[in-house]
C-alpha cells in the first residue's frame, strides 16, 4: 500500500491505496466523485479528463500515487457555490449533450483549452483540441458550438 495526499476540489484528502490504483479509481471509488467517467481501456475517449495542477489529463492514465501532492479539480469542483461555470452553462444552452456520459470530460477539456488558448476559439481549433474526447451521441456539432460560446462567456 502507498499513501497519497492531494487536494481535490479544494479539499485535502489522504488515502492508502494499492500502487496500481488509478487516479480515476481514487476519485470514483474512494472519494465517491463519480462525475469523472471511464469509457475506454486505451486512453482514447476522454470521459475521465480532470485537471491536475491546472492541466487537463486523463485520470485513467495516471496512477493515484503520481498525483501525490497535486491539486486536482473534477467536474464536481467546477461550479462555485452552486453557480454553474460558464462552460457548463454553455453546454446546456447549446444542447451540447445527450446522454451526458462524455460531458464531464468534454467540459474539463474545454475549460483547460480556454485557459491555454484564450476566449476566441474558431471551430477548427476546437475540433482539433477535442481529438482526445469521444462523444457517441451528439455528432460533436453542438459541443463545438457550446465550447465557442463558453469560451466567450469565460472572459
Amino acid at each position: 500500500m502507498a499513501s497519497v495526499t492531494l487536494t481535490v476540489n479544494g479539499r485535502t484528502v489522504s488515502a492508502d491505496v494499492d500502487p496500481r490504483t488509478l487516479l480515476v479509481q481514487l476519485l470514483r471509488e474512494h472519494l465517491h466523485l463519480t462525475g469523472t467517467h471511464v469509457g475506454c481501456d486505451t486512453s482514447q475517449c476522454g470521459a475521465c479528463v480532470v485537471h491536475v495542477n491546472g492541466r487537463a489529463v486523463k485520470s485513467c492514465t495516471l496512477l493515484a500515487v503520481q498525483a501525490d501532492g497535486a491539486k486536482v479539480v473534477t467536474i464536481e469542483g467546477l461550479a462555485a457555490n452552486g453557480k454553474l461555470h460558464p462552460m457548463q452553462e454553455a453546454f446546456r444552452e447549446n444542447h451540447g449533450l445527450q446522454c451526458g456520459f462524455c460531458t464531464p470530460g468534454m467540459i474539463m477539456t474545454a475549460v483547460e483549452l480556454v485557459n491555454r488558448k484564450g476566449n476566441n476559439l474558431d471551430e477548427h481549433t476546437i475540433r482539433e483540441e477535442l481529438e482526445g474526447n469521444l462523444c457517441r451521441c451528439t455528432g460533436y456539432h453542438n459541443i463545438v458550438k457550446a465550447i465557442a460560446a463558453g469560451a466567450k462567456a469565460m472572459r
Binding site: R28, H32, L33, T34, G35, T36, H37, V38, T74, I75, E76, L78, A79, L84, Q88, F91, R92, E93, H95, L97, C99, G100, F101, T103, P104, I107
Partner: peptide, 21 residues
C-alpha cells in the same frame, strides 16, 4: 426549452449504473 436533465449531467451528478455503490 433547455433540457431538464442537463443540470445533473453537466455538474457530474448523473447516476449511471457504475456510479451506484
Amino acid at each position: 426549452v433547455r433540457r431538464t436533465e442537463d443540470r445533473r449531467f453537466i455538474t457530474g451528478r448523473g447516476q449511471y449504473t457504475d456510479d451506484i455503490r
